[in-house]
Simulated assay, not measured.
Amino acid sequence: MAQEKTGIITFKGNPMTLLGPDIKVGDAAPEFRVVDNGLAPVTLADSAGKVRLITVVPSIDTPVCDTMTRKFNQDAAALPDSVVVYTISLDLPFAQKRWCGAAGIEKVKTLSDYQERSFGLNYGLLIKELKLLARAVYVIDQQGKVAYREIVKEVTAEPDYAAALAAAKNLV
């Protein structure tokens, strides 16, 4: 049974429950298994030795998630190749691929946690009531430690883009 955490996030002002552990800065980043737009598995280990900027959205097809992914895609263009940028959601890979094509997303790699929900459960971001992922940003260093974490308090709000990008840049 997954650990339940309350008092961390709200959705439209209503308190929500997160399932999974409370991963903090300094912790070893948990492994996960998600799939890319072609249904190929992607794990944390696949990007070992690189800085990972992982943005997490409830659904890519909603206005705030759309804005967030476009903003990180734009800002990621200035990051060196030693930084990988992932956006993870529970959207089906086919929907992610269609959205990315329409939005011109090239630097951010969209990944789907729909099969196992291992990212959501391992990072403590699966919203019990909605069966969606909470909005969050993680930066994981080259050694696999969490260097930055923001779980956005209100699911419909945007993250602190500048702080997340600064955390990633400080590691390269």
Rank of each mutant, 00 (worst) to 15 (best):
D46P: 01
S47M: 11
Y138R: 06
I88V: 15
V56S: 07
E116Y: 14
N122M: 05
L165Y: 09
L90P: 02
R149L: 11
A48Y: 02
E106I: 00
P80A: 12
A162D: 14
V83C: 07
E158Y: 03
P63M: 11
G104W: 12
I127E: 04
P58T: 06
I140N: 11
D160M: 08
D113K: 03
D160Q: 11
S112L: 03
Y86V: 01
K128G: 03
V155K: 00
A147G: 05
L132E: 10
L44M: 12
R52L: 15
V85F: 02
T69P: 04
R98E: 07
V51Y: 07
Q143H: 08
A102D: 08
F119S: 00
V84D: 12
V139W: 09
L121N: 05
A77Y: 00
V137S: 10
F119A: 01
L133N: 04
N122I: 10
N73M: 07
Q74R: 14
E158A: 15
P159D: 05
Q142I: 13
L92G: 09
D61V: 13
A78I: 09
D91E: 09
V83A: 10
A45N: 12
Q143I: 00
L125E: 04
W99G: 00
Y123E: 01
K145Q: 14
T67P: 00
D113H: 05
P58F: 06
Y148C: 03
A147I: 05
F94D: 10
Y114N: 06
I151L: 14
P80Q: 12
V155M: 14
S89W: 12
P159N: 06
N73G: 08
S118A: 15
G101P: 00
D141I: 11
L79T: 06
V152S: 02
V139S: 01
L132Q: 13
R117P: 01
W99M: 02
F119E: 04
Y86S: 05
K97C: 01
W99T: 01
Q74C: 02
V155I: 15
K128H: 05
N73E: 12
V146W: 05
K50I: 01
D61E: 14
Y123W: 09
D61A: 11
G120E: 08
L165C: 02
I88M: 04
K128S: 07
I151G: 02
A103H: 07
A162I: 04
A134R: 03
T55R: 08
W99D: 00
